[in-house]
Design a protein around this nucleic acid. Structure first.
Lengths: 154, 154
DNA sequence: TTACGTGCAAAGGTTTTGCACTAGC
DNA sequence: GCTAGTGCAAAACCTTTGCACGTAA
């Protein structure tokens, strides 16, 4: 759960104005938990649900919100950046990317803390954040493959 | 260590020709172990070390070599794709990305296998590959910060 | 010889930027 | 009223593609 009031406070602390456009971008993310939206997708959703705003404004809002640690930027190597609410206060989570259908799911557990301590000891590298993605087949696509396993591929 | 002969064999198996351009791209990676080169960087290096080849050819070579599992494509969210030799035969490694100076180092250990089994059991997601990046401060930048710790920031 | 590969330039897609106008605070 | 924010269009990037020409097998 994300608290909008804390977001507004962060904007004020950065002496950033709370404009209707920025509020709408934030609302889109609040209404789409667990999704990883691209700039274009945010733009379309804002237009459909509320009103037309400039795509450049969406980009600038996403950059601002990322700088304020309200959003996190992720890349799934599909040629465009994606964004989600920054969940550092609660916990890190990781991503399960299906190479068959493209679906991205989340995996809540964070088991990397001991590894981070070890990296600092061995290499002098002080970890601030990490990003872990698993590429593979989601439950549905595993099932589909099993179903078609009699059929020769291609 | 990468064996060039095995690369040439892979090209033949794919009925792909070993052209001078492709050979030069491969040599650039062989001469830059541990680096993560972008298409533009590969292009510049080939031009400087050997001869001028087309940038489009570099892109096509990188795509081909990635399809043949000779190279791996990685993204460090700097807006361009980067490539390195695929090290699946030896072992997975992860990346330590310094947020201060941008340097990318490698970390050899792969401790995720038990986690992958767990993900399949819990979620039905069959992991084929993974990608783990740690963002933080490299040894040098940690030292620099310590040295300047008397000075107030900015 | 002939299908595959290359180089060039043009096109495609995403993101950034310049500038005049608008609107929070 | 000032300054920051917006919208639009142009520009900047990275990457892909069409096509005529060249070349490895």
């Amino acid at each position: 759960m994300v608290h909008l009031s804390s977001i507004y406070r962060k904007l004020e602390e950065g002496t950033k104005r709370l404009t209707p456009q920025r509020e709408l971008v934030i609302r889109i993310f609040a209404e789409h938990p667990g999704e990883h939206l691209s700039a274009e997708e945010v733009h379309q959703l804002v237009k459909r649900r509320f009103q037309d705003i400039g795509l450049a404004t969406v980009y600038r809002s996403l950059e601002l919100l990322t700088d304020l640690d309200i959003l996190t930027r992720i890349s799934f190597d599909d040629g465009r950046a994606r964004y989600e609410f920054n969940q550092e206060e609660t916990h890190h989570h990781h991503h399960l990317v299906c190479v068959e259908c493209g679906h991205v799911d989340e995996y809540g557990e964070d088991l990397l803390d001991p590894l981070e301590a070890r990296i600092f000891n061995e290499r002098g590298f002080q970890v601030l954040d990490h990003e872990l993605k698993f590429y593979g087949l989601c439950r549905n696509c595993v099932a589909k493959r099993k179903k078609n396993s009699g059929t020769p591929p291609k």
